[in-house]
Amino acid sequence: MSPIVELKDVHKSFGSLEVLKGVTFEVNKGEVAAIIGQSGSGKSTALRCMDRLETIQGGSMLICGHQLHDTDVDLKALRRDVGIVFQSYNLFPHLTVAQNIMLAPRMVKGMKQRDAREIADTVIAKVGLREKMDCYPEQLSGGQQQRVAIARSLAMEPKLMLFDEVTSALDPQLTGEVLRVMEQLAADGMTMILVTHEMAFARKVADRVIYMRDGKVHEMGSSDILRTPATPELAAFVSESAEH
């Protein structure tokens, strides 16, 4: 099986601060990969590079067939293939749930109102919020907003979904409802890469766990590495996370 995501020796600096110091890993189609690690280990930056929100300065990055280190990479095509969900939801506050979801299909794919609405109905059902279609974001809880954000990404029918600490702003109860939606997505065969602090979720859903430390992949493997870490650093990280 050929990988849908391929990072080779990726380097990225902000000014004189080197954040990614040679990151290499692959993710296959249909896999769920969890990137874990301390704050400042570069995991969110790595994820943001995958959607070209940040540009890389060294190495190569192949995402859904797009070479991101090329200067003439087709960003529009890349963003059709890749969906991303952020920690802070970033729903458009002046639009209803339905309008949030339909905006990109209409603007980017040029869909008619009716076709876009059909897609919106499908994806909102996937996140279980059919009755909220005409609400505005501020009328929803954080967990509901995040589920709408997931639906909004799904409406573009991406091949790869990126999740950047999507439950970090939520209390445990709301975290659960978002994780259940993600679990269902994984079960449906979506390729997913998530930066997360939810160890239990990573253990349960991830096919591949990538432990980043100091701008590099320190340890990588199946979710078994969370039970039996090979390096003392990951062992310490896992036991620290368990305390919280």
Binding site: D51, F86, S88, F92, H94, A104, M107
Partner: peptide, 30 residues
């Protein structure tokens, strides 16, 4: 308008004109 709004629009594939029209100007005016 928060930077996250722009990132969300960019990642959904909206052009910068579309982003300005639908994600920036409208809520800014409101």
């Amino acid at each position: 308008i928060h930077r996250g709004q722009l990132e969300a629009a960019t990642c959904l594939g909206l052009s910068s004109t579309q982003t300005y029209l639908h994600v920036i100007i409208r809520p800014a005016l409101e």
